[in-house]
Computed example of a mutant assay.
Amino acid sequence: MKKVKTWMKISDVLSDFQDKINTSLGRETSSEWNKRVLKEYCVYLRGLSVQGLPEILNEIQDTWNSGLYQDFVWAFGERKMESRPLTFEELAHNKLSTLAATNLPSTGFNTLMSGKTDLNLFRAMGPMIEAIYHLNSGRAFNWEDMLNLAFSDLETRLIFALNRFDEVKEVPEPTAEFFQKLKETSMTSEQTKNLEEKIGLVLIHIEGEIFGMGFENSVEDYWPTMSLFIQFLAACSAVQHNREEIVNEDIIRAYRTFFKLIKTDVTQYKADPELVRDMDEDNPDYEDVIVCKNCGSYYKLEPGESVDDFESCHCGGELKQVHDERT
C-alpha cells in the first residue's frame, strides 16, 4: 500500500495544518470532530428499536478494539497477484458467476443511487473475499489461491446461507430463477436506507480514528465496495425470505455475515478439483465463449463462430456471447 501510505502522509500534513488554524481560533480539531460525530452516531443507533442492532454495534466495537478491522482494511489495499488472472473462459466454469453475469443488469455508476440489485453488487463479493483471504495468507495470491478464490463454494455459501455460511452441509445449486428474483429486490424504505447509512458512517468514522482523517479518500475503492457488498448480502437475505423489499432485518443479517466472515480463515475453502482439473497457469486461453442465461452452461467459440450461429442452449435457455477484453 505504498501509494495509500503516501496519500495518508499528504492528508496528515494537510490535516495538521488545518488543525493548527482551528486550534488558534478556538475551534475543534478534525480529530475532535471525528470523535464527537462517531459518538453521536453510536448513541443515535443504540436508541433505535431494531432487533439485532446492539449486537452489530458490539461487533463493530470488538473488531475495532482487537485491531481486526484495521488489519482487514489494510489487507484490502495490499492484496495483489503474483500469477496471471483467470480468463473469461476459465471463469465460465464458475456457474455462479455466469448466471450472475447473464441475469443481473449492469447499472454502472448509478448502482449506489438506484438501490437496485445489479451485477456491480454481486461483483463486490470478490474483492471483499480476496481481502479476507489475504488477511489470512499474508502474501500475494499464487495460482492455487486464484483457483481457490474463483472455484470454492464460499460465494455460493454466502449467497444462500449468509451468516450460517460455515454451518451448512449441503449448498443449494445456483439457478437462473434465483438471480432473476434477486434483480427485483431493492431498498426503498427510508428507514432501512437510514439504518444502512448510519452503520456505514460509524465505520467511516472508526477508520478516521484508526488511520487518521482523510483515509477514506486514500483507498478510494474500499468504501464503495464495502457498501455494495452489504447491499448485496441484504438483497440475498430478502430473496431467502421471499421478499422484493430489503428491510432492516436484511441489513442486520448482512452485517452479521460480514463480521463473521472477516473472523473466518477463508483459505480453508478450496477449489473443486473437477472444475480446475485442466486449468494451467502457463497456458492462458483468451477465446470468446457463449454462456446460457438459464443453466450457466458454456461453449468456447471456434474461429469464425458467433452466438448468432446457435438458436438456444440444450435446456432451451437464451445464449449470450462473452468477450475477454484482455485479448
Rank of each mutant, 00 (worst) to 15 (best):
W7C: 06
W7E: 15
K9P: 00
K9T: 06
S11H: 08
L14Q: 05
S15Q: 04
T23E: 06
L25W: 11
R27V: 03
S30K: 14
S31I: 05
E32I: 07
W33V: 13
K35W: 03
R36F: 05
K39S: 14
G47F: 10
V50R: 15
E55P: 00
I56A: 01
I56P: 03
E59A: 08
E59V: 01
E59R: 11
I60L: 13
Q61L: 07
V73T: 13
V73N: 05
W74F: 04
G77H: 01
M81T: 06
E82A: 14
R84P: 02
P85N: 03
T87Q: 08
F88R: 05
E89C: 01
L91M: 12
H93P: 00
L96D: 07
S97E: 13
T98A: 01
N103P: 06
L104N: 14
S114M: 03
S114H: 01
S114D: 01
K116V: 00
L119N: 08
F122K: 11
R123Q: 12
R123A: 06
M128H: 09
M128C: 09
I132N: 15
I132C: 15
H134K: 15
G138W: 06
G138C: 12
R139E: 02
F141Y: 15
N142G: 14
M146E: 09
A150S: 10
F151T: 07
F151S: 01
F151C: 03
L154P: 03
T156C: 06
F160H: 07
A161C: 11
A161T: 08
D166F: 02
K169M: 07
P174H: 02
T175K: 08
K181W: 03
T185K: 04
S186Y: 10
S189M: 14
E190V: 07
K193H: 09
E196S: 14
E196Q: 14
G200H: 12
L201Y: 11
E207L: 12
E209D: 10
I210V: 15
I210K: 08
F211Q: 09
F211M: 10
G212V: 07
G214N: 07
G214E: 04
E216V: 14
N217W: 04
S218Q: 10
S218H: 03
Y222A: 09
Y222K: 05
W223K: 14
L228I: 00
L228N: 03
F229H: 09
A235E: 04
S237F: 02
S237G: 11
S237M: 06
S237L: 08
N242K: 14
R243F: 05
E244G: 02
E245Y: 01
E249A: 11
R253C: 05
Y255E: 08
Y255K: 09
R256P: 02
T257C: 15
T257R: 06
K260S: 13
L261T: 12
I262S: 13
D265C: 04
V266A: 06
T267G: 01
T267R: 15
Q268L: 14
K270P: 04
K270R: 13
K270T: 07
A271N: 11
A271D: 09
D272Y: 00
E274L: 15
D280W: 00
D282E: 13
N283R: 12
N283K: 14
D288M: 07
C292L: 07
K293P: 00
K293W: 00
N294Q: 10
C295F: 08
Y298P: 00
Y299E: 05
E302K: 10
V307H: 01
D309T: 02
D309G: 15
F310Y: 12
F310S: 03
G316S: 11
K320M: 15
